[in-house]
Design a protein around this nucleic acid. Sequence first.
DNA 1: AGGATACCCTGACCGC
DNA 2: TGCGGTCAGGGTATCC
Length: 288
Amino acid sequence: MPELPEVETVKRGLEPALVGRRIAHVDLRRKDLRIPFPARFAERLAGKRITGMGRRAKYLLADLDDGETLIIHLGMSGRLTLSGKSGRNGEGRYYHEVRPLTRHDHVVLDLDDGERLVFNDPRRFGLMSLARTAELSAASFFRHLGIEPLGNELSADRLLDGLKGKKTSLKAALLDQTFVVGIGNIYACEALHRARISPKRLCHTMKLERAERLAQAIKEVLMEAIEAGGSSLKDYVHADGSLGYFQHRFAVYDRESQPCPRKTCKGTKIRRIVQSNRSTFYCPNCQR
DNA sequence: AGGATACCCTGACCGC
DNA sequence: TGCGGTCAGGGTATCC
């Protein structure tokens, strides 16, 4: 379920533990995830220091001190877990505990301070790769990506420009990562509900007023989810170091037959339809 | 060419 | 209790 807000939350959760640390050892426990690991992956990571972290679309980035960047995509079920524990106990004695590895723990990064980062991904829709930091935007993963939804790039005008002439539904357009990045099935539904626009509406029928509402709604929905993730970060990095996805209240997603939260809808039931093989949830009363 | 569909994969869940 | 079927969705290959 990781869309932009979840990836951003993972980035913020990991940043303090990873930046400045050196990767002491890498354990690659299989040869591929969704795609094969790049050549000499473990060797290229080992010994490098993590100098900073970033995010592009739903990709998590860790810059290394040799000019390469570790690229991580969580796919659908990927998780990054901090599982090492080391330090001085009450008696000043050094201790080191590491959680035993489990099924689907595919990549293990041991850091120089005793911390351990584990990538677990049951469905293996995720990926890990490496690219030259200076050439990231030209890397295959990023070359075709559209604009980031937060910040000034996304505006009503920019939306209108991208939507004009498109014959698809708005829902499909929002999921298209070559247009706007970071929005997945959940936040597409949520943004359209907040903007009071039908997911079935055809792109080319959009005019300025709806485009303004949609641009605003996308930003709000994503930013509120990031805030919810941020505020739950201390719960979210659990005592054992594992990172869970924060629970967030959705207005329409996965709420089929439940009342639309919008007061003026007076209990109109949320409807579920299928668009391009994916569930769409919306309120037939307020979304037009 | 661009839009729709199939597929990768496993776990959760449901009905029997 | 077990078992088969269905669904979940990010991204991309492939088809139309």
